[in-house]
Nucleic acid binder design. Structure first.
Lengths: 148, 148
DNA sequence: GAGTAAGTGGCGAAAAGTGGGAAAATGTCG
DNA sequence: CGACATTTTCCCACTTTTCGCCACTTACTC
């Protein structure tokens, strides 16, 4: 179960050093095989390979002729890449994905249970502000009866 | 299983260098025989020949008197070409198909499970933006209960 | 304060990408 | 019908990038 947000920085080669406390969990859940892909909210998704497979299969089963379904397929599967950490626990983020999520030096790694999200600094700040802006609106579908 | 987007460039002769990580998969799945054809969304499709055959047969079995079916037949089967990679892992894209998909120097090769799509740079960017534009609309048929 | 673990940068080997050139095949014109 | 010109295909060599590994520095813990 992945949780917690960490501010990290990409090095000159676009490598992301995974915090040590998450390394073992990632490595054992995935036997080292990780999948990095794009999310429609302009961040990246980092899955252990076994958790990614069923999602990929579901997405692939959608019609290629429906414009919306095809767009989602192209985004999620089209951008997916299998990666693995190097000996120092770093993950190389492909230039195409870096560009997609507009990642610069400052980056956030955010645990989301089954997976991580990777945000640009600007994107993450904006995301946080969006939550404040929600104010006391009604809670979204599925969370109407959430109590903290 | 093909996935991942790669930004590539066509050389002066219209050849596309397939990234090395996909070469073996393509070569073994197809024993070197590849099929290149047109897609209604103005990109190209690249199939290993064995995966193409059943699709071609299904398309061909449709009635030629129905206007839509005939149009799809003409597009998919009419534009299909059998190609193969050269010794350096490059694929020659016929001028007719290059023109169809409006390919210039910058090109994207996008994995879609059983096959690849080939996009012009402009077309792919537009495609990506289409997903952002979807916003938080309802998900398309078949993917309503998709959770990431 | 010292030892250990984590993060960071850099270097070198190997492989992948790019361009060019030669040979073969096809088509055209005399 | 033959010869020449043009196009196409195949292959070789060079340049560039990538990736894995090693070493150094920094931070934290005991």
């Amino acid at each position: 179960m992945f949780q917690g947000a960490a501010a990290l920085s990409l090095d000159a080669k676009g490598r992301l050093a995974i915090p040590a406390r998450h390394r073992e969990a990632l490595a054992s859940a995935a036997s080292g095989r990780l999948v990095l892909t794009a999310h429609p909210h302009r961040c990246l998704l980092l899955y252990p390979e076994p958790a990614w497979e069923p999602i990929r299969d579901k997405v692939l089963s959608a019609s290629s002729f429906n414009l919306q379904a095809a767009a989602i397929k192209r985004l999620l599967v089209g951008n997916a890449r299998e990666e693995s950490m190097d000996a120092a626990g770093r993950l190389l983020i492909a230039p195409e994905l870096r560009q997609f999520a507009q990642l610069e030096k400052q980056v956030w790694l955010v645990g989301q249970g089954s997976h991580f999200e990777i945000w640009s600094d600007a994107g993450w700040q904006k995301q946080q502000e969006a939550v404040f802006a929600l104010g006391d609106q009604f809670l979204p579908p599925g969370l109407e009866d959430l109590a903290l």
